[in-house]
């Protein structure tokens, strides 16, 4: 147990510190790198909870795909960030307001949250689990009890993706493209001409 506690404090400590570093780092690329460190430690916390599937998916999806694109965009930006910071103070009241609302919401949840009910529910589901791994359990639950919400979530993401492509896609005229199908469809007759050359005539 003591090892688990040590590991928890290690992960949680690094997670909090790197989350703090995300918003305080001067260099935006450093911010993204700290964000990745935070994701990674959050996945460590999930592992400690025994939720190995969610831990791995967190690393694969957020660290392996989302944050890469984040880093990609931030690296390509050519913005003077010290200029950007000058006006930042005027947003402090709005930020504080949002923070306050979140804090109140958390407090409300904590007040209405009955720990006994949750542990009781958890022990029932743990008893039902038996030998099945939590990957199997999540899969079975997601594709039987929650098929429709799951599929609708997928559709929403799909629409969002198409929307992003439509908004950013520009068809510029006059761009030369390689048309592979056309290249393959080309026949010998239209591509080359066989010329009989008579020797010693130079033509």
């Amino acid at each position: 147990m003591i090892i688990q506690a040590l590991a928890f404090y290690l992960f949680a400590g690094i997670l909090s510190l790197s989350a703090l570093a995300v918003i305080t780092a001067r260099n935006p690329v450093h911010s993204v790198l700290f964000l990745i460190l935070a994701f990674f430690n959050a996945s460590g916390l999930f592992l400690l909870l025994g939720a190995e599937f969610i831990a791995m998916i967190l690393v694969i999806v957020y660290v392996g795909a989302v944050a890469v694109l984040f880093l990609f965009v931030v690296m390509m930006l050519d913005i003077n960030f010290s200029d950007l910071r000058k006006g930042a103070m005027q947003y402090v009241p709005v930020g504080l307001l949002i923070g306050l609302i979140l804090l109140i919401e958390l407090a409300v949840i904590y007040q209405t949250w009955s720990l006994d009910a949750i542990t009781a529910a958890a022990s029932i589901s743990m008893a039902n689990m038996g030998e099945t791994t939590n990957t199997e359990l999540i899969g079975a639950n997601l594709y039987t009890n929650y098929v429709l919400p799951f599929q609708i979530a997928g559709l929403i993401l799909f629409v969002a993706m198409i929307g992003a492509i439509v908004l950013t896609h520009r068809s510029r005229p006059g761009v030369k493209r390689q048309k592979v199908a056309q290249q393959y469809a080309r026949q010998r007759d239209e591509a080359m001409e066989i010329v009989k050359v008579t020797p010693r005539t130079g033509a």
Binding site: E52, F53, M56, I57, V59, I60, V63, G64, T133, T135
Partner: peptide
């Protein structure tokens, strides 16, 4: 979750 670990 060995496969997922490798993929991660």
């Amino acid at each position: 979750v060995g496969v997922l670990y490798l993929f991660a």
